[in-house]
């Protein structure tokens, strides 16, 4: 059993963070980032995030396992067809990776290989079903596996997406096909998070609220423009703009959202993008 699944089951407030594999094979920065985390249950390893090509997250996740750090392997449907997804999943299990986060993936058009052919052979709901099948000992074609893997599989949700009802039906589907935890897209609006949690609670799936550290008004605007599903409300952009120490302001915003998540959610997933040393302050919330 992974620590993540145990801690979520025990009802303890869980904190996860994330690290991106390097573009290249120099692992120093990624590893020291992952090793530097303190008080964190598991570390997400992102998968060609933002459709920018980097080292395979499976490789980095396996290296983290060797170092005694528990990874959450992110796996998107953008770059792999159903065969590649299944073989990566089996490989991950064999390398000791148990936590996985299954995503559709940002469209290739956003990244550094916009001419790539996006795959999307499966969607995230279907991929969750595939994982369940593998755990039951068969592949998508119904063929038996020699040695079935065991996973703790989660899925992404976007509590602030509109229309809410439409977003939520997908979320229910994910729960129905066996998502064991939800990790939200970065959230900034406590009321929307609350509305989501009210709807999601009956699904019985623990939710980790995505908390993103804003470093400046410029970054907030960039996120609004370029990153799908992330909406920094105007009043927060203004707050960052007005401050003479925008990073401090960003830490305060993240701290407030964390405090909010403590009352509503099972944990937080922190996205600190190179500012990992600010995590203890954020967790004071």
């Amino acid at each position: 059993m992974s620590h993540l699944s145990e801690q979520l089951a025990s009802g303890r407030f869980v904190v996860t963070a994330e690290v991106a594999p390097p573009k290249g094979i120099d692992l120093q920065e990624a590893l020291s980032c992952a090793e530097g985390f303190d008080g964190i249950t598991a570390v997400n390893v992102t998968d060609n995030q933002g459709a920018n090509m980097r080292m395979s997250p499976l490789a980095l996740a396996a290296l983290l396992v060797r170092r005694g750090i528990e990874p959450v392997l992110q796996l998107t449907c953008r770059d792999r067809n159903r065969m590649a997804l299944q073989s990566d999943l089996l490989g991950a299990a064999a390398l000791g990776v148990e936590n996985i986060l299954l995503l559709s993936g940002d469209h290739a058009r956003f990244g550094d290989h916009p001419a790539a052919r996006p795959v999307f052979d499966l969607d995230s709901v279907q991929l969750l079903q595939v994982v369940r099948g593998l755990e039951e000992g068969h592949d998508m074609a119904g063929r038996p596996l020699r040695g079935a893997p065991h996973f703790f599989a989660g899925a992404a949700v976007s509590p602030e997406a509109e229309p809410f009802e439409l977003m939520f039906q997908k979320c229910s589907k994910k729960a129905a096909v066996g998502a064991r935890f939800f990790q939200t897209q970065a959230v900034f609006d406590p009321h929307r998070l609350e509305r989501f949690m009210e709807a999601a609670r009956p699904l019985g799936v623990p939710v980790l609220a995505g908390i993103l550290l804003l470093k400046s008004a410029r970054m907030a605007r960039f996120l609004n423009e370029k990153i799908p599903g992330v909406r920094v409300p105007a009043h927060l952009v203004e707050r960052l703009e007005a401050s003479s120490h925008p990073l401090e302001e960003g830490v305060a915003i993240a701290r407030d959202m964390t405090a909010c998540a403590r009352t509503l959610c099972a944990g937080v997933h922190l996205m600190t993008l190179g500012m990992e040393e600010r995590i203890p302050e954020i967790l004071q919330g």
């Binding site: 995230s124 997908k170 599903g229």
Partner: peptide, 17 residues
């Protein structure tokens, strides 16, 4: 993305990511 089970997380106010 040719998804078959509902929208992705990029849906925003009914628009495509």
């Amino acid at each position: 993305k040719g998804l078959l089970n509902g929208p992705c997380g990029g849906l925003e106010e009914g628009r495509c990511e």
